[in-house]
Amino acid sequence: HRQALGERLYPRVQAMQPAFASKITGMLLELSPAQLLLLLASEDSLRARVDEAMELII
């Protein structure tokens, strides 16, 4: 289940942060499945989480 969510998330994360897409997707997969579904449904929520992840990385 998580694998399938990751496969759906990755291209969207890659479009926002290509250099760190794998790392960010891995970080996002730590969230609950319900939270992941919310990110897939909301571009704004996904962008906010990706921005948060980038702050942790750099």
Rank of each mutant, 00 (worst) to 15 (best):
I58F: 11
A4T: 14
A41N: 13
E30H: 10
E7G: 06
D44G: 08
H1V: 14
S22T: 10
R12P: 03
L31V: 03
L38Q: 11
A15K: 10
L56F: 14
T25M: 15
Q14P: 01
V13H: 01
R47A: 06
L56M: 10
S42T: 05
A48R: 14
A4D: 14
L56A: 09
L36C: 04
D51S: 09
A53N: 03
G6Y: 15
S42Q: 07
M16T: 03
F20D: 04
P33D: 13
M54L: 10
G26Q: 15
Q35Y: 13
M16G: 01
S32G: 07
Q35L: 10
G26Y: 15
L5M: 12
G6R: 14
G6F: 15
A48S: 09
F20C: 04
M16C: 04
E52Y: 09
S45D: 12
V13N: 01
S45W: 07
R8W: 14
I57F: 05
E55K: 13
G6H: 14
M16N: 02
S45Q: 14
E7Q: 13
S42E: 08
L46I: 04
L29W: 02
Q17W: 11
Q35C: 07
A21N: 00
L46D: 00
F20S: 03
L5P: 03
Q3K: 11
L31G: 04
E30F: 09
S32A: 11
A48W: 08
M27E: 02
Q17N: 10
Q3E: 12
L28C: 01
A19E: 15
Q14M: 11
S32P: 12
I58K: 10
V50R: 00
H1K: 08
L38N: 07
R49A: 12
A19R: 11
L29C: 03
L31W: 03
Y10R: 07
L29Y: 03
I57Y: 03
Q35H: 07
I58Y: 11
A34P: 09
K23R: 14
L40H: 02
S22Q: 09
R49D: 02
G6W: 15
L39K: 00
L31Y: 05
R12T: 05
L28R: 00
Y10N: 03
R8E: 13
A48M: 12
I58A: 12
F20M: 07
I58D: 07
L39P: 00
D44H: 09
T25G: 02
L39H: 02
T25E: 01
L36N: 01
T25F: 12
R47M: 06
I57D: 01
I57E: 02
A15G: 06
F20K: 03
L37I: 09
V50D: 00
H1I: 14
E55N: 12
R8L: 15
P18M: 05
Q35S: 08
E7S: 09
A19M: 13
V50Y: 01
Y10A: 06
A19H: 11
V13W: 02
L9M: 04
A41Y: 07
L28Y: 01
A4E: 15
P18N: 05
P11N: 15
L37T: 08
D44L: 08
P11E: 15
E7M: 09
L39R: 00
P33Q: 14
H1F: 04
R47I: 06
Q14K: 12
A41K: 11
L37S: 06
M16E: 03
L56G: 05
L31S: 06
E7C: 13
L39D: 02
L9N: 00
R49P: 00
R2A: 12
Q17E: 08
D51M: 12
A41C: 07
M27G: 01
Q35V: 14
M16Q: 05
M16A: 03
R2G: 10
R8F: 14
L46A: 00
R2Q: 12
P11Y: 15
P18T: 04
E30I: 06
S42G: 05
S42H: 10
L46Q: 00
I24A: 00
A34H: 09
R12C: 05
L28K: 02
A21R: 01
L29A: 03
M16D: 01
P18Y: 06
D44N: 09
L56C: 06
E43M: 09
E7H: 10
M27R: 03
Q3P: 07
R8M: 13
E52P: 00
E43Y: 11
S45R: 13
R47T: 04
A41W: 07
A48L: 12
Q3R: 09
E52R: 08
Q35K: 07
R49H: 09
A21Y: 03
A19N: 11
Q14S: 09
Q17K: 09
Y10K: 05
L31N: 04
M27S: 02
L29T: 03
I58S: 09
S32T: 12
A53E: 03
A34V: 10
M54T: 05
L9W: 02
A15F: 08
A34N: 08
L9Y: 01
A53L: 14
L56N: 08
S42L: 05
L46F: 08
A15M: 11
A53S: 06
E52H: 09
I57S: 02
L5G: 02
F20A: 05
E52L: 08
P33M: 15
R8Q: 14
L37C: 06
L36G: 01
Q3Y: 04
S32Q: 10
A19Q: 10
Y10E: 03
S22N: 13
A4P: 09
E55W: 14
L28F: 04
M54R: 06
D51F: 12
E7T: 09
L31A: 05
R8C: 06
M54H: 06
P33K: 09
L29D: 00
A21G: 05
P11L: 15
R49W: 13
I24E: 00
Q3C: 08
E30L: 11
I24V: 05
G6A: 15
H1L: 11
P18G: 06
Y10G: 04
P33C: 14
L31D: 05
S45N: 10
A41D: 08
K23Y: 09
A48F: 11
L5Q: 03
P11D: 15
R47W: 05
G26P: 06
S22I: 13
M27P: 00
G26N: 14
M54A: 07
H1M: 07
S32L: 07
A41I: 08
I57N: 01
L38D: 06
L5N: 03
M16H: 06
L38I: 10
L9F: 04
A19K: 12
L28T: 00
L46T: 01
P11C: 15
L36W: 03
L40T: 03
L29V: 05
D44E: 13
V13S: 01
Q3F: 03
Q3T: 08
M16W: 07
P33R: 12
Q14N: 09
P33L: 11
A41L: 12
A21F: 03
S42I: 04
R2K: 15
G6M: 15
Q35G: 04
S32I: 05
P33A: 11
E30S: 14
A53I: 14
L40E: 04
A53T: 09
R12A: 09
Q14T: 06
K23D: 07
A21L: 02
E43P: 12
I24C: 01
R47Q: 08
V13G: 03
E43D: 09
L39Q: 00
G6L: 15
Q3D: 15
E52Q: 10
S45E: 10
L36I: 11
P33I: 15
H1S: 10
P33G: 08
L9E: 00
M27N: 01
Q3M: 06
G26M: 14
E30C: 10
A53P: 01
I57W: 04
R49N: 04
L28Q: 00
R47C: 03
L56Q: 12
R47K: 09
L39V: 08
P11M: 15
I58R: 11
T25S: 04
V50T: 02
E43S: 08
R49F: 13
L29R: 02
D51E: 14
T25I: 12
M54C: 04
E55Q: 14
A21K: 00
Q35W: 05
G26I: 13
I58P: 03
Q14C: 10
A41G: 07
Y10F: 12
A41Q: 11
L5I: 12
D51H: 08
V13A: 02
H1E: 15
S32W: 06
R12V: 10
M54Q: 03
G6V: 15
L36Y: 02
